[in-house]
Design a protein around this nucleic acid. Structure first.
Length: 595
RNA sequence: UGCCUCGUAGUGUAAUGGUAGCACCAGAGAUUCUGGAUCUCUUUGUCUAGGUUCGAAUCCUAGCGAGGCAGCCA
């Protein structure tokens, strides 16, 4: 029934939720599988949301269904349009080329259809699949159902399943903790109706009253102890303006949104597990003629060396500890994208971490592996020098320039080759030379030899120093027979280093990123901000081979021996800015750390 | 504290009463004009104790441990 997981060339994932869905498909329980991704627009999406997106859209994709994107916007105090826009953009980016066919949107401005089914009133708003539509579309919004929610609230009051409560928030908390019934619990239907209408009409101030479900104050499950369904908030909502002064709570709104949209499998994270009985109670306590949704829970993603809560990410942004939500060090989808990570790599990561109910801590090394694996196959290779050190090839003619062939991608013969220029004066990376080589060092050292990639074997004859003793230039001689493909080109030289022509190289700003935090679990104890990595960003002025002047913003390049780099939007014509997405694996660095 | 859920190599996950596998990480080697990639090999595991069964990671009981919930947030 499942189809291969498109870009991963791996079998379709299997987990306990997909098992349930597969079973329902087999038994023809539903006409079509329908999931949803319901973020609250109160922050930017992060890689944890990416896991949820890959799950919900993955299920829709694998079983030929639809996944609605829905703004769970029932709290006007916290939500903003900026977040709505970023959430839509990030979601589309993540599923682009993979599950666009399964994206469920709604016609702009459309609200649920009202149907009379016998003497039952039913509300329904079906999704249309994104790409085929000619009409303007938008994501679903829970706030588009405020009228319907209110009708359902009235129904709950009429059938004796809800009441208006006048207790203060503090009293409500205390009574729920103690399992004590509210003194307002047994108001008549008429009085409840009258109060609810007046609540809606703005007769009472914020917090004065609530609408509560009438369930069971002695239940061991706190969420069944008459949970609040509506609260009074005289506040402007980003989507509904000033139309409402009462707003539904999560449980009420979310459950009924699922029903209205015809969701079959409502997948959420573990903290909502204890809410499931309430979810089911709500659906059972209303007259709902169509098939009911079911809720399933999985463990949210935890990643080492980062924080994931929106509150903490917001704090990093507000305290200017990073440069915005899309700072490439952030675990946000926009940050990871700006850093140069691809949607397919993120999807592949989501595939590898799996779906369980165990609250695990995933090693960020797995993400890094996934990214490297993809780029190793796809990234065009280029030469760039991060910290330039000038070298002069003293036996190479001053006016001579040679064009040498450089392989674009050894993993992909079809990628062909390009020409790079060699001359008397070059830059190499300062990190590739030392006067005091440790054991097993095979880069350049005084009197030592090294291969210049695609070019000659050179020997370091002289180290030129400035007044302060710092190395400013190396004078070398080349083995002129050793050019790649030449007479002595097969001489075994341990080290090969990268270089650029001093005359032809272009300048670029390169931003080198490292982990944002210095410890694997920054929010385990203490103030997570005290574990920020002071070296998480290092900006250098690099020298790059000229072809990088026309770098494609959509392409990740491998700077040979250094890592994978992508153009930052800060780039200006003639002044490229590259972000280092991830270094290459560096076993030599590991070796030196050991000594 | 009450309730809910979950415990499989260091990490993440398979095994759905029948040989405990895979990936990442780590380590060793081969190879290499990227100390990359590739290839080979290695270390390490079913939380504990009972029970059911020919047979238990899987089912049952108890214990231990971890996470979640106890907002008029979602």
């Amino acid at each position: 029934m499942t189809t291969p997981n498109q870009n991963e060339h791996a079998p379709a994932p299997s987990d306990f939720i997909r098992d349930v869905v597969a079973g329902d498909v087999k038994s023809r329980k539903h006409a079509q599988i329908h999931t949803r991704f319901p973020p609250e627009p109160n922050g930017y999406l992060h890689i944890g949301h990416a896991k949820a997106i890959c799950l919900n859209f993955g299920i829709a994709h694998e079983f030929g269904g639809v996944c609605n994107i829905r703004m769970d916007d029932t709290n006007p105090a916290k939500e903003e349009v900026e977040y709505v826009d970023s959430i839509l953009a990030d979601t589309k980016w993540l599923i682009d080329g993979w599950a666009d066919d399964n994206l469920g949107l709604k016609p702009r401005g459309k609200t649920p259809d009202t149907k009379v089914n016998g003497n039952k009133t039913d509300f329904e708003l079906s999704a249309i699949r994104n790409p085929k539509s000619e009409i303007p579309v938008e994501p679903f919004h829970a706030s588009d159902y405020f009228d319907q929610f209110y009708e359902y609230a009235l129904q709950l009051v009429r059938n004796g399943n809800a009441y208006v409560c006048d207790m203060t928030p503090e009293q409500t908390d205390e009574f729920r903790r103690l399992g004590k019934e509210s003194p307002f619990r047994d108001r008549s239907v008429e009085e409840n109706l009258d109060l609810l209408v007046r609540m809606k009409g703005g007769a009472f101030p914020d917090g004065a009253r609530t609408l509560r479900a009438k369930i069971d104050m002695s239940s061991p499950n706190l969420w069944l102890r008459d949970p609040v369904l509506y609260r009074i908030r005289h506040a402007e909502h980003h989507h509904t303006g000033n139309k409402w002064c009462i707003y539904p709570m999560y449980d009420f709104a979310h459950t009924l949104s699922d029903y209205i949209e015809g969701i079959t499998h409502s997948v959420c994270t573990l903290e909502f597990e204890v809410h499931r009985p309430l979810y089911d109670w709500l659906l059972a306590s209303l007259d709902l003629p169509r098939p009911l949704p079911h809720q399933y829970e999985f463990a949210r993603l935890n990643l080492t060396y980062t924080v994931m809560s929106k509150r903490k990410l917001m704090q990093l942004v507000n305290d200017r500890l990073v440069n915005g939500w899309d700072d490439p060090r952030m675990p946000t989808i926009s940050g990871l994208r700006r850093r140069g990570m691809t949607a397919s790599a993120l999807r592949s990561f989501a595939y590898h971490i799996g779906i369980t109910k165990y609250p695990s801590m995933t090693d960020v090394a797995l993400l890094e592996h996934t990214v490297r694996e993809e780029f190793n196959r796809s990234a065009p290779r280029r030469l760039a020098v991060l910290r330039p050190l000038k070298i002069v090839i003293t036996n190479y003619p001053e006016s001579k320039v040679e064009e040498l062939a450089a392989v674009n991608n050894p993993e992909d013969p079809g990628a062909g080759s390009r020409k790079i220029q060699f001359g008397r004066e070059l830059f190499i990376d300062a990190a590739d030379f030392t006067e005091t080589p440790p054991p097993k060092y095979f880069r350049l050292k005084p009197g030592g030899e090294v291969r210049l990639k695609y070019a000659y074997i050179i020997k370091c004859d002289e180290v030129v120093k400035g007044d302060d003793g710092a190395v400013i230039e190396l004078r070398c001689t080349a083995d002129l027979e050793s050019k790649s493909g030449g007479a002595t080109s097969s001489r075994k030289i341990k080290g090969t280093i990268h270089w650029v022509s001093a005359a032809r190289a272009i300048d670029a700003e390169v931003r080198l990123y490292d982990r944002l935090f210095t410890v694997p679990e920054p929010d385990a104890d203490g103030d997570f901000k005290s574990f920020l990595n002071p070296n998480s960003l290092d900006v250098v002025n690099a020298k790059c081979e000229p072809s990088l002047a026309d770098a494609d913003p959509q392409v990740s390049y491998q700077f040979e021996r250094l890592g994978y780099f992508a153009l930052d939007p800060d780039s200006k014509p003639g002044k490229p800015v590259f972000n280092r997405t991830i270094t290459l694996k560096d076993t030599w660095a590991k070796e030196t750390r050991k000594h």
